[in-house]
Every structure is written in structure tokens, then in C-alpha cells.
Design a protein around this nucleic acid. Structure first.
Lengths: 179, 179, 179, 179
DNA sequence: AATGAATGAGTGTTCATTCAT
DNA sequence: CATGAATGAACACTCATTCAT
């Protein structure tokens, strides 16, 4: 059973995300993306209009990957938030080497979908804990800023310490939280 | 009275920092840097061996700029930390548009001088407040991760709110701090 | 009926040989080669990986041209050798101006195919005249060294005399030869 | 006792000859020449008008070197000719690697002084052996064409055999010669 | 007289993009 | 539909040359 043709677009996007995170999209050739995806290089332009379009797909793909990851998290709000922090720790090696996945999406200006959705999901959890919407959103920003800042330091210093410490700190903060 | 020759290297570096922050260094032509610096384009290679060398100068220049900015801050530790957070707020418009200055330095892999120096300086302030070295360093990471994370969100969302909120939060945290 | 695509590579190679002989390959721009071949300049890199690659094609092309020229020569060995000397005389004007075609191939170091094949062919003729292989090879070297030396002097002095004299001398030597 | 200033021009020329033979003048930077000569790079233009001028100096210098070498040869004509062939054999390693010194001079078009003088000197020897001027000049061409052709093959094939064989052959030819 | 600093014109090479098939 | 062949615009980098001192 051959893979459906549209699969190629997905493989292309996945390859682009991988290379964008490891090498930077700017520094990555469309030919390299096609090569890694195992797709004929001429075909990139069948699936994408321009390289900027590929960048858009990267941002979208990252948002999708993050959404999928959140779907696997516990339903109970406090546990869900702790688990979210856990995904950063699980990814610590890659974060130290290449930065957080969300930061990869930042490289594409003008598309903050991944950020907005992540923030909204976190706020939903706080609301589930009994906080009002406004307070929940404020807390969401605080939590995401904390881990992303920790991730940024971990990447810059090539040391997972900052990420681990921030995650632990936020975990305590979440656990002690009461609406 | 003509400008000293060495001035050109500095103008080149300043232009490179500016363009690196607004456009990204990768996407910036050496010719563009020369143009913005008002230096003949062929001369870039008299002052820098290679484009990677320019990137190094950018990272160095950012570290220098940040060090200079810290020099202007109050001597009293608690006030100094609050003032540091204030520099982020003063720079809010640019941060929203292009990210924090420190993030610009991150684009040059392998050179974390700006990060290390900033962290050390912050830790010094906490030590000045009576904390042990280890605790001071942990607090420094927390503070920097917080503002930088806030700045990252502000940039991604093109909204200064997250930066302002994180800065305010950390200001309170610093003020309530007692060794 | 459009020219076959592969024709472009050949036109490029021919132009490169021509310019290598008249101007020197080092001094010849890839753009100039493309221009003379009537091929878009960006396309050179579709057919050749690098300029050194073009140099290789020049050496190969020269070897091919010489082989083709030898194919048109008489089958009888003595006549064939005399005819080979005749090709130098036919080419005297170009040799005086730019040196022998074989000398053009020498510009590409490490590739002596044209020399080896020419030498082998000459040795074959002497073998055909009844000489042992070793003696034939020695005579081949003597004959080729003679004409090429004559050609080199003709080029240096911009005077066909030396070439004509050496060719005539070798012709007699070949004719008087008996195994 | 410091070296006279004019020494620098000579060192520059010597370096240029060396690099022209080993690397090719075209491929050699004026800075590299200055470097090898131990002369400040800006000074090249004090001693030479242009790079083409340096090329002229190379051709001239080669002619001078060859003339100096001939000065050390025996006075007796037959011995002198044999000794001339000996200089090629002494230089065999360099010839195999970089071609004959005379060939280096050929790279500079329009200046055949080295060739003309060498030819004249050889003709003089034959005259000394009793040949008429015209016959002597013809013999000179034959002898020089032979060694230079042998040298060219030795260089192209990276094998000293052809040079040695041609030199030996010509030596016999000279020795058996009687006016 | 001699030179280090500075530069502009030019070169090889890359790559996003187009298009015929 | 899909793609391999082809290309032009752009870029990093080199170097002969100039000139103030």
C-alpha cells in the first residue's frame, strides 16, 4: 500500500521543522529539505509556493506538534500543567542544543499561533483550578515566560541547569496554587 | 578634524548589531552593513576576516553595550536590580519589534559572554543583599529567565503586556527579598 | 528541431578549450566561457561542479580532439607518423600564436591522458614498422619531444621556423627508419 | 652592514620567479611574493609599476639566471654543450615537478629574450666547432627543441625518463658531430 | 624614499524559482 | 500530477592598485 501523495507535503514539513530547529531555516536549502524528506527536489514547488511558504508551514507544523503533545496530557488541570513542564524536561537535550520548539516557531514573524494556543491552553488549566479568566491568562503568561526563559538560557549557555531550575520552580508554584 | 580610522570598525560593528537585531544577521548582506555604516563595501574585509567574524563582533558588541548600560545603574543592589528591569521597560518598543538585545547575541552560537556577564552581575547584586554565592546565582538565573522569557513572549505576540507583567512581578520579588 | 540539451555541455567545453588556448584558463572567466558558448552564465554550474571541473573537461576534451584527429590518419604506420607531423604543420599559425594543443592540456596538472594516449599511438606505429615495444616507446618519446619542443620554440619566438624544421627533421628520421 | 635598498627589488624578483615556477604567476598574489621576499607588501608598487611589470621582471630574471648558469660552463664548445644538457639533468627533480626554467619564462608573452640568448649561445658553440652560422643556428634550434620537449614531457608525465633519454640522445648527437 | 591602510572592480559559487514535459 | 532541467540574481570574498604620510 503506497503512501498517499499528500504524505509528501507532510514529510516535507517535518523535514523543514527538523532542519529549521537544528540548522536554522535561513541557512537551510530547499534542496536539503527535499533531500531529508526523500522527495524529488523539483517537487517542493508543487507543494509550496515559495520558501516563505515553507516557513509558514514550519510555524504551523510546530503549532500542530505542540497541540498534539498537549492532547496526551492528563485531564486534571494541576497535573496537566506539571506534565507540560515535564515535556520541556524530556526535551532538555534538544533544547540545550537547539532551543525550545516554540522558539523555532518564533523565527517566522507574524505567526504567533503556537504561542497563542499554548497560552490559551495554559489559561484554561488555571481556569479549571478556579481562577477567573483574567487571572488565568496572567498566570499563563507567567508560566510560559518562565519555562521559555529557562529554555533560552539553557540554550545560550549550553547547560540544562537553568531549564531544570525554572521548571522545578514553576512546578512548586503551580502545586502551591490555590484560587 | 577627521574621524579616527579605527572609528570605521566601530561603525561597522554598530551597523551590524542594528541590522542583526532588525533583520537577522543571516539575512543581512555585508554590503548592507557597509552601506549603513557609511563605509566602502570593499573595506569590510579589511576590518573583518569573514562574515562569521562580523557575527563574533556583533556578539561582543552586544556584550559591551549591555555592560555599559549596567555601569550606569545605581550602586545599591536592590535599586540596581530594579533599574535593570527598568532598562527592559525603556526598551519595550524595540523588544516588541525585534526581541531583546541579549537575544540578538544568541544568534551567534558558541559565544555566551553577554549571558555569562549579565548573570554574574545580577548574582553580585544578590550577594550584595546578603545571599550566599550559590543562592545568588540561582536567583540570577531566575530573574534573567523571567525577563528574557517575558521579552520573548512580547516579541512573539507583538504585545508589550507580557514583558511589563513579568518585569513588575520580578520587581516585587526583588523588593520582598530578604536574605 | 532544437539542439539536444547535452549539446550545451559540449559547447561549454569547446569554448573553454578555445579560451584556455588563447587566453589561458586561469585568466578566463566562467562568464566569458558561458558567453562564448552562448549559454546562460548561471548554467555553467549546472554542467560543472567547479572551475577546476571545467579544467578537467578541457584536458579531456583536448585528449578527445587529438584522438579524433589521429583517427583520420592513414593506416600505414610510416605514412601515419608523417601525417601526424603534418597536423602540426597544418596548425602552425595557431601554434605560433598560442602553443600546441597538447601544451594546452598540460595546464591541467595531474591529467596526462592526452600525453599518454598520443605516446601510445605513436609507439603503436613504430611497432607496426617492426620495432620491439620498448624501442617503439623510446622512439615515440623522441618524436613527440621533438615536435612539442619545436612547437614550444615556435610559440616563444613567434616564428614558425623551429616547428617546420623539427617536423622536417623528424619526417626524415621516420622515413629512414628501419627496424 | 645593512643590505642595500635595491636588494629588495632583487629579492622580490627572485621570490616572483620561484612562485611563478611552483604555483604559476597568475595564481600568485603580489602579497605572497612580498611575503616570500620578506618585503613590506605595500612596497611592491615602489619597485614595480604593475603586476605585468613583475611578470616582465620574471622573464628578465630567468634570462639572467640562465646566462649566469652558462657562464659557469666549460670554454670548449663540445664540452660546453654537454654541460648545458647536464644542467637540465641536475634540475631534473624540479623540471618534473614544475617544468623547465625556460618554460617559466614563456608564460610572459612577448619577451623571448631568454630563448633568443640561449639559442645564440648554443649556436656560438656550434660555430666554435667549425659550423657555418646558418648551420649552427639550425643545430641550436634542434638541440634546444629536443631538451625542452623532453622537459615538457617529463613535466606532463611526472616522470624524468623522457628528459633523461632526450638529453642522452642529444649528448651523443653533439659528440658525434663534426663540421 | 618607502609603506601600511584602504578600496572598487571583479570572480567563483549558491540557490530560490520557473517551466517544459 | 509531478518533476528534473535549467537559470538569473545575489552574495561572500579576493586582490591589484592607489595614496597619504
Amino acid at each position: 500500500m503506497p503512501r498517499p501523495a499528500t504524505d509528501k507535503r507532510e514529510r516535507l514539513t517535518a523535514a523543514a521543522i527538523h532542519l529549521a530547529r537544528t540548522t536554522g531555516l535561513e541557512a537551510t536549502t530547499l534542496a536539503a529539505i527535499a533531500g531529508e524528506a526523500g522527495v524529488p527536489s523539483g517537487s517542493v514547488y508543487y507543494y509550496f509556493k515559495t520558501k516563505a511558504d515553507v516557513a509558514g508551514a514550519v510555524a504551523d507544523g510546530v503549532a500542530d506538534q505542540l497541540a498534539a503533545a498537549r492532547d496526551g496530557l492528563p485531564a486534571e488541570p494541576a497535573a496537566a500543567l506539571v506534565a507540560l513542564l515535564g515535556t520541556y524536561l524530556d526535551d532538555a537535550t534538544a533544547i540545550r542544543a537547539h532551543g525550545s520548539l516554540l522558539a523555532t516557531a518564533s523565527a517566522v514573524p507574524g505567526d504567533a499561533r503556537a504561542h497563542r494556543e499554548t497560552l490559551a491552553w495554559i489559561a484554561d488549566q488555571f481556569e479549571g483550578l478556579g481562577f477567573a479568566r483574567a487571572a488565568s491568562e496572567a498566570r499563563a503568561v507567567h508560566l510560559l515566560a518562565g519555562v521559555e526563559g529557562g529554555a533560552a538560557l539553557a540554550h545560550a549557555l549550553d547547560e540544562s541547569g537553568p531549564l531544570e531550575r525554572e521548571a522545578a520552580h514553576l512546578e512548586r508554584w503551580v502545586s502551591n496554587t490555590k484560587a
